[in-house]
Each structure stands twice: as C-alpha cells, then as structure tokens.
Design a binder for these strands. Sequence first.
DNA 1: CAGGGTAGTTGGTAATACCAACTACCTCAA
DNA 2: TTGAGGTAGTTGGTATTACCAACTACCCTG
Lengths: 137, 137
Amino acid sequence: MTKRSALGLTDALVQMSFAVMTVLNRVAADHDLSTTQLRVLGILVDRQPKMTELAEHLGLDKSSISGLIDRAQARGLVERIASPDDGRSVHVSLTREGHTLARIGGQAIRQSVATLVGQLDVAERDQLRELLARLTA
Amino acid sequence: MTKRSALGLTDALVQMSFAVMTVLNRVAADHDLSTTQLRVLGILVDRQPKMTELAEHLGLDKSSISGLIDRAQARGLVERIASPDDGRSVHVSLTREGHTLARIGGQAIRQSVATLVGQLDVAERDQLRELLARLTA
DNA sequence: CAGGGTAGTTGGTAATACCAACTACCTCAA
DNA sequence: TTGAGGTAGTTGGTATTACCAACTACCCTG
C-alpha cells in the first residue's frame, strides 16, 4: 500500500501550491495586479483568445471575464478586438504596455520561484521538472 | 538543455499550483466554503490559535480574519473562546461540526489530489514527495 | 496609576466571482 | 428568406474576500 506516502505527498503538494500562490500574489501586488490579472497577462502573451475561451482557460464564468478585461483595458494593458468572422465575438489582445508588464511579471515570478527551489541542486531540479511535467500532461 | 529545464520548472510548478488550487476550490465549493475557509478548518484541526496567530499563518490582515471567523461561526463551524490569560485575546476553535467538515474536506482533497498524481508510479510519487518536502523545509 | 503598546472589531472601499437576465448576432431549416 | 433557436458578451445584483484606518478594550511598565 502507498497510503503513507500518498498522504505525505498530498500535504507537500498543497503546501507547495500555497507557497507558489503566495509568490504569485506578491509579484502581482507589486505591480498593482491580482493573481488572476497577472495570469491573464501570462495567457495573452502568445494568444488572442475570445472572451469565452479565456473564461474556459481560467475556469471562470464569462461574466467574470467582462469585468476583469474592463479593468485591464482601463489600465491600458489589453485591447478588445472585434472578430472579423463573428460579430458577437471579441478577441482579447495585449497592448504594448501589457506585453511589457507580462514580461516583467514573468521574470519576477521566475526569480521568486527560483528562490523557492534554491534548496535543490541542478539534477534534482531536473528530476522535479520531469515529474511535474508528467502530472500536467 | 539547461535553459529549457530552468524555464520549464517554474512553469511546471505554477501550472501544478493552479491545478491544486482548482482542486481545493472545487472541494471547498462542494461544501459551500471558500478555499480560505477550508484552509482555516485545516489549520484548526490541531490548534486553537489566537486571531492574530491565525492571520499570520494565513498571511492575511487581522481585520480580514474577523469577518472570516464571523461567517464560520455563524455557520457553527468554529467558536471564539476568550483567552484566560489575556483579556484582549480570542482563541479560535473548531466545533464538533467544524471538525467533521474538516475531516471530510481533508479526505476529499486527498482523493482529488491523488487523482492528479495518478500518472506517477509509486517510486515516482515517493521521489516527488521527497523533493517537495525539501522545498518547504 | 498614567501612558504607550497590543488584540480584536468596525467601517469604508475595491476587486473577485457568481447567477440570471438581457442584447446582438449567427445559423439552419422550413 | 425569414424566423426560431442557439451563442457571445454585457449588465445588474449579491456575497465574499481582503485591505487600510480608526476605534475600543485591555495589558504592562515606569
């Protein structure tokens, strides 16, 4: 039975996740963003999804996206672009400023998370990366 | 090689954390709780901290705790207990119902997270658990 | 025993996220 | 081709979360 290690693994994963979320939260707050907004920026770096696609990606209701994008747009971070194919659809796209902030935020996250994993040597990090990659696959 | 793994580790950790938070969120919602409330229950399982200690533990402002505990108390999940030592302090304690919900929630989390790590075999889980344990240490 | 510090609450604000209802648009079938 | 039904997004209303600043009640020290 794997019961003992399974229990410990869950706790470790949850604890780890809170640590990561704390980092994300802090990085976001440093730039006057919420974690969700920072996440949106990260998503938009290489995509211009429709509102609904963004909602699915984030696991949020589409009505939550409207306000989120409203605020980001008011700050000049994103643009709404009418779909040429479908008069109902709106694509969301980073502005130049949004791209800059996404890049800065990404760097800050990488740096902070790097601190988190600083305990591990290179081989262990590689091991961890591979194990995690297997999970999300 | 090195560059790819360095970038990939952060991304994998962040993605994993969102996956875990989604699980926690869903489990909490299943019992009409927020993630924070579920977390509070988890903390209180083996402690009766003061409000301020709880705030520190959660990384929240003490004023945020008041409302949180207000709502949990209104639902009969926790009790405020005046400190015998200090007339200003209040200890927070799970009620019997709160304990039950904490236990049920913990099981649900373990089960859902177990699904997340289902891709890994026993040896890999053990490896992952050890690596994560190293991080939080 | 007065003055300064600490614990917790209150009030006010903004953001997040939900649901339900709505508008505008699209598509398909009669 | 037109109208019925579905889809995309917004709006309005509500609850929660979390913050800060101001407040009350209490503790401790000089």
